[in-house]
C-alpha cells in the first residue's frame, strides 16, 4: 500500500487558521483577467498582497504591486508565505509545485478543471514538503477582518467564532450568511474544493479549526462522492467532540452515476450517498441538518 500523504505539521505562530493579517500573499496568474479582478478585490479587503507572478512579465508593476517571473523570485524579494493560484487548468499543477518548491507554506488553488492525473502528481510531489495545499476548485480561505485569500464576497463574512469547512463556493457564502443572521460570526472559512483529489480533505481542515483558539464551533458542508466527510466525522468523535459541529451534505436528491457539476460530486457506491454520509455524521455526534436553510438556526441552538 502507498504511504498515504499527511501533513499536519503546520505551525503558523500567529493566531487564526491558515491566513491572517500578517500573511504575505502573492498571486500566481496575477496579470490574467481572473487574477487581476480578484487580486484587486483582495487588496480592497485589506489582504496583505505583496506581489504576483506571471512568467515573462517580471519587473513590471500591476495593481501597484511588483510582478515576478517566478515564485522563488517573489519569495526572495517579498518574503511571501501564502500563494493564491488563478493559473488556467493546463498549467495549474505546475504552478502549485512551483509554489511548494519555492517554500510557500499555504498554497490556495482556485483553478477549476485540473486533470486528475496532474493532481495525483501534485499530491505526491508535495507530500514530503512543508506546505499546505487548499483546493483546487475552491473559493479560498477567509479570516474575516484579517485576510481574504479567495474569491468569496468578503462582506458576507462578519467576524466571529464559527469556523466553516466546505466543498462548495456559494454554499459556503450561504452558510456564512445564515451564521451572521443568527447573530454569530465567522472565525475562518476554508473552501476545500469539489474535486476528486484535493490538498486538504475535510478532516484536516476540521482539525485546524478544532485546534484554533478563535473557533468555538464548526460548520461542515459536504457533498455526495468520496469519503472525506465520514473520515472527518470519525475524527470528531474520536477526539471527544470538543466543539459543536453542524453538518450538511448537498445532493440528497442526486441520482447515482451522474456528475453534479463538481468533478468529485458523483455517487459511485453506497458510501458516496448523502444519506450514508449523514448517517455516519449523526452517529458521530454531529448536528446534521436535512435542509440547507437550517444551518444558522441549528448552530444557534447547538451553542445555546
Amino acid at each position: 500500500m502507498m504511504p498515504y500523504f499527511c501533513h499536519q505539521n503546520f505551525t503558523i505562530a500567529d493566531m487564526s487558521v491558515l491566513v491572517n493579517k500578517d500573511s504575505k500573499v502573492i498571486v500566481q496568474g496575477f496579470t490574467g483577467s481572473e487574477g487581476s479582478f480578484h487580486a484587486e478585490q483582495m487588496i480592497d479587503y485589506g489582504t496583505n498582497v505583496v506581489g504576483g507572478v506571471t512568467p515573462g512579465k517580471g519587473g513590471q508593476s500591476h495593481l501597484g504591486k511588483p510582478v515576478f517571473n517566478s515564485v522563488s523570485d517573489a519569495v526572495k524579494e517579498t518574503g511571501a508565505d501564502v500563494s493564491i493560484i488563478f493559473v488556467p487548468p493546463a498549467f495549474a499543477a505546475d504552478a502549485i509545485m512551483e509554489a511548494a518548491d519555492a517554500g510557500i507554506k499555504v498554497v490556495i488553488t482556485i483553478t477549476e478543471g485540473i486533470p486528475v492525473k496532474d493532481m495525483i502528481t501534485v499530491k505526491e510531489y508535495i507530500s514530503d514538503k512543508d506546505v499546505i495545499l487548499i483546493g483546487p476548485n475552491c473559493p479560498g480561505v477567509i479570516t474575516p477582518g484579517e485576510a481574504k485569500v479567495g474569491i468569496m464576497p468578503g462582506f458576507v463574512f462578519k467576524k466571529g467564532k464559527i469556523g466553516i469547512v466546505s466543498k462548495s463556493g456559494t454554499l459556503t457564502y450561504e452558510a456564512a450568511d445564515q451564521i451572521v443572521k443568527a447573530d454569530l460570526g465567522i472565525s475562518t472559512a476554508i473552501g476545500i474544493g469539489g474535486d476528486p483529489i484535493i490538498g486538504t480533505p475535510t478532516k484536516d481542515a476540521v482539525k485546524m479549526l478544532m485546534e484554533d483558539p478563535d473557533t468555538d464551533a464548526i460548520v461542515m458542508i459536504g457533498e455526495i462522492g468520496g469519503n472525506y466527510e465520514a473520515e472527518a466525522a470519525k475524527y470528531i468523535k474520536e477526539t471527544g467532540n470538543k466543539k459543536p459541529v453542524v453538518g450538511f451534505i448537498a445532493g440528497q436528491t442526486a441520482p447515482p452515476g451522474r456528475r453534479m457539476g463538481h468533478a468529485g460530486a458523483i455517487i459511485g457506491g453506497k458510501d458516496d450517498t448523502a444519506e450514508a454520509k449523514m448517517k455516519i455524521m449523526s452517529e458521530c455526534g454531529i448536528h446534521v441538518v436535512k435542509s440547507p436553510a437550517d444551518i444558522g438556526e441549528t448552530m444557534k441552538n447547538a451553542l445555546a
Partner: peptide, 29 residues
C-alpha cells in the same frame, strides 16, 4: 450551462454546484 436532466416537477437554476444540489434538496423537502 452545467445541466443534468432529472425526473421531477420543479425546475431550478442556481449559481454554484454545491448550492445547486442543496437547492434540489430544498425542493424535495
Amino acid at each position: 450551462l452545467n445541466y443534468v436532466k432529472l425526473d421531477g416537477n420543479v425546475g431550478c437554476m442556481v449559481n454554484g454546484a454545491g448550492l445547486a444540489m442543496a437547492t434540489m434538496d430544498i425542493i424535495k423537502l
